[in-house]
Design a protein around this nucleic acid. Structure first.
Ligand code: MN
Ligand code: MN
Ligand code: ZN
Ligand code: ZN
Lengths: 157, 157
DNA sequence: CCTTTATTGATAATGATTATCATATTCAAT
DNA sequence: ATTGAATATGATAATCATTATCAATAAAGG
């Protein structure tokens, strides 16, 4: 039910054309897994999910492909303080879905938030402009993360 | 010239009283190193610096002490995307010196900035309040990092 | 000095990520 | 379809920052 013809999210096909990269089964399978979750998966998470459908795909390929996808800006790579890197699709069919994160330092839960983004954008724009000028620094990216305790973890020792 | 009597930054002595923790030579040496730099040192950096004065101090103690200092909130631990953790004294004699970072993705240079913090504070306050309410999340900390190219790295391939 | 507890350092183990390298796949040109 | 160069893959071993162990030390308080 996850055969090649059925995967066909055409919107990332175009990204591979012209880069010299090939859109192979492992690569599509990885994009497919990422596109079907709202969680922030580790390389091993992705490996296990892909493994169910394509048991021949190795962990090395997962790492290699993720590195490629990050470099192509199709995927974001995050560090939330547990030891493993976490990956998330950078855009959906509707374009880039920019958001920031709340990270629970007790249970590791990650919450995406997109509210307040508008106000943040305003300030970030100003800040980036000021910083670029003052330090002659070309900003390409930023991360904002709030750490603390999620609702469940506040009601425990 | 870095003997015990000479180190005596009394302001962190108090932090160890009442916690059951002892202010030992290795711990003071580590705090001393951190207090004398504006750079963002790795555990090994600190090890090497301490080693010059107290060659008997082992790397394990550096890691253990840093973990303790982070937990005591005397030191901040950062991840700037190179593989090693980076450490920075959380406060000076004047109290906490809150700031954010610019990270050059090419040469790894880290720039502290404290300008724009006031405007940021305003927005962060609002955002934290809104997020806390909406998600019932108790925020204790945040990180903001801008990634890009520093002035030197813009003028290279 | 003695006892208890906290701290230390040498060493080995861990675990996520990378490097290697021989094999397999793709794709365009016959 | 066949071929052949370029690209991609997977099993395996290597890296390397960080942790776990554990016996030896040092501090604190009588
Ligand atoms: Mn997210
Ligand atoms: Mn800093
Ligand atoms: Zn939680
Ligand atoms: Zn640079």
């Amino acid at each position: 039910m996850l055969d090649r013809a059925n995967i066909g999210h055409p919107w990332w096909h175009g990204r591979f054309r012209g880069c010299g990269y090939r859109l192979t089964i492992p690569r599509e399978a990885i994009l497919d897994v990422l596109s079907k979750t709202s969680r922030h998966l580790s390389a091993e998470d992705i490996f296990l999910a892909v493994h169910k459908v394509y048991p021949a795909v190795g962990l090395t390929t997962i790492y290699r492909t993720l590195e490629l996808l990050v470099q192509m800006r199709l995927v974001f790579k995050f560090d939330f303080g547990d030891k493993r890197a976490r990956y998330e699709l950078a855009e959906g069919t509707k374009g880039i879905r920019h958001h920031h994160h709340l990270v629970c330092t007790r249970c590791g839960r990650i919450i995406d938030y997109t509210d307040f983004i508008d106000e943040e954008k305003e300030l970030l724009g100003q800040t980036e402009k000021g910083l670029s000028k003052k330090f002659n620094f070309k900003i390409t990216n930023h991360i904002i993360q709030f750490y603390g305790l999620c609702d469940k973890c506040q009601n425990k020792g």
